[in-house]
Amino acid sequence: MFNATLFKSGIKGGIKTLALFCAVLTMYYLIIVQMFDPALGKMVQELAAAMPELMAIFGMNLNSATLTGFLASYLYGFIIIMFPMIFSILSVNRLIVRHVDGGSLVFLVAAPIKRRDVAFTQMTVILSGLLALTLYVSVLGIVASEISFPGELETGKFILLNLGALALHMFIAGICFLSACIFNETKYSVGIGAGIPVLGFIIQMLSNSGEKLEGFKYATFFSLFSTDGLIAMRPNAVWGMVALFFCAIALFISAIAVFTKKDLHI
């Protein structure tokens, strides 16, 4: 099922990108944690009342009075959706798309290794990257909060929030991976694999911003990741997370099945 050499090479090839994403996210986390002011909670509420559309467009809302809520709305509404999404798109591109379209896949499949094992190993590389990224930002969030505002962060809720984000990103990576396994040309595999989540995210952002597009609020899978719901530990939000997780597994299984059976014009 798993080829250690391929895994090692995949991790090695992606370590720089991972480090870069971690560095950028570190900057955001440190700045945003610093921006929290317990006394400011009230002001944010007033601001939200004055300019609800602007606040909503970035997924920010009234929960931001607590540190957990503040981080949930300022980091997990936009930053932690966008950056890992780009990370997934880049990873799938590096591990599958490039090899299929460029033809270097030849050396991976013209070998005594099953195609299923090639796809499975590449999947584990992608998921390891997402797991590492999530783990990193979880620890970062907790440590940064504890240093600046000891005892303010509700760690359990914050971890649940990160688990939710991980489920969402596994699902997004699943879409990219499936698309990469179906299509042979970069323009289709990236166009569709990255297009669906990016478009979904834009719809989500717009539907947050105004009543006109309110109807689209539940039109995309992003509604399954509810930051408010998760930190309030609402059952619906937890079920949404579980749904994303199982759908992600289904996407990856289908992707591997497609990859095993497809014609490779390499």
Binding site: G102, G103, V106, F107, I266
Partner: peptide
Amino acid sequence: YLPGEIAFFD
């Protein structure tokens, strides 16, 4: 196997 058009891991 030697492919006709070789693409490596650049």
